[in-house]
Simulated scan of single mutants.
Amino acid sequence: MKDYYAILGVSDHAHSSEIKRAYRRLAIQYHPDKNPSPEAQTLFVEINEAYDVLIDPQERRAYDLRRYKPFAEFVQEEQLPKHRDPRYRPKPNYKREKSQQLRFMERMAQPARMLNIVGLVLVLLFTVDYIMPYRQTSEVITNGPEIELQRRGAPYYLTTASHKTVKVYRKLSEFGGRIKLTQTRIFGITMSVSDLSGFNQVTMGYMYRGYIIFPLFLLIASVVGVINRRNIIINFNFAVGTGLMLIINYFLVF
């Protein structure tokens, strides 16, 4: 490998201004019009070659890497054509950013598919939980919140003698201390609360009534995510929606 620094007679850490001065001095000395010797013509070509490499920061960096690490793998950066306007700045490479996002989605394709399958299984459990015969138990209320401290629309959390916590949205003082709970068998969602005679029944089960839209959204997101195997973007986006719906349904149930 040619030593361009030695050809120009400068040090390895020479500034660009020093390289320019050395080049001008040597170019005048060995120019073919002023020095007709055959050696001068060869030296003039080497001087121009050394100057072209050392005056360009990227070319100089690449040359230094090859010079100090000749056996190391080297990948030269893509050289963009120089613009006539010095204020010109090239536009960012959005294709490269997009390809990075696609590579990330490809790595997350299998976890995204598994998340969609989990969402679909949970919807099936909700369906079975709603269809199965409900469980009825007689409970004794041991304590409950003060009515005056309840803000409007906030639920009441009642504790029974069997250490069950029941969330209701109505005052149950007319039931006395004993109530009959109707709950689902899988998730234990309270569907109704009544007194022992069956009268004064309060319909509950908001998960399967007022909030049924969230299990439906979970069903749509998980089914579309499971069906779309080829389209990585759709699979990933619906997996994100499935994860969000799983979190919402978890807080609604528990």
Rank of each mutant, 00 (worst) to 15 (best):
R107K: 13
Y94G: 06
I213W: 10
V45W: 12
E77C: 04
Y30T: 00
E73G: 10
Y94V: 08
Y4F: 02
L244M: 09
R103S: 13
K91W: 15
V123D: 01
Q150P: 06
Y157G: 01
S11Y: 05
V226E: 02
S99L: 13
Y23P: 08
I28T: 15
F104E: 11
Y68R: 07
G210M: 07
K34A: 15
G210R: 01
Q110K: 11
R61A: 10
K167G: 01
V75R: 08
N228I: 15
S37V: 11
V75S: 11
P86V: 00
A14Y: 07
L252K: 08
G205D: 03
K82S: 04
A6P: 08
Y156G: 06
L80H: 12
Y157D: 01
I232Q: 10
Y88N: 01
Q58W: 08
Y211E: 14
R89E: 14
K69I: 15
L246S: 05
P90M: 04
N231I: 04
I28A: 13
I233E: 14
R229T: 09
V223N: 02
F44L: 10
Y5P: 14
A27I: 09
E106F: 15
F44R: 06
Q183W: 05
H15G: 12
R185S: 04
E49T: 05
E73D: 04
N231L: 00
R103I: 14
Q110P: 04
L122V: 14
R113V: 07
R107E: 07
P155M: 00
Y4H: 03
A109Y: 09
A27S: 14
A72K: 06
L65S: 09
R89G: 08
R151T: 06
V123H: 04
Q58N: 09
G210F: 08
M105P: 11
L219C: 07
D64W: 10
E59H: 13
G119K: 09
N200E: 03
K164H: 07
S162W: 09
I220R: 08
N93S: 12
R89P: 07
L65E: 11
R152Y: 13
R87M: 10
R24P: 02
I147L: 06
L102F: 15
N93P: 02
K2H: 12
Q100Y: 14
V53Q: 03
L246C: 08
S222P: 13
I213A: 11
R60F: 02
L8G: 02
F71P: 11
I55V: 09
F187P: 03
L125C: 12
P92S: 06
D12H: 10
P145L: 02
D64L: 13
Y63W: 00
N249E: 01
R229C: 10
R229G: 13
V168T: 02
A22W: 03
M207A: 12
I213P: 07
S99R: 12
N231S: 04
I141S: 01
S17Y: 07
M105T: 12
G177W: 14
R229K: 15
E18Q: 15
R209D: 07
I7N: 01
G119V: 09
I220F: 13
P133Q: 00
R135Q: 06
A112V: 09
A221V: 02
V140L: 06
E78K: 14
Y130F: 08
Y63P: 00
N35V: 10
I227S: 10
M191A: 05
E49V: 03
Q76D: 05
N249I: 02
T165N: 10
K164S: 04
T160V: 02
E97C: 13
F254W: 15
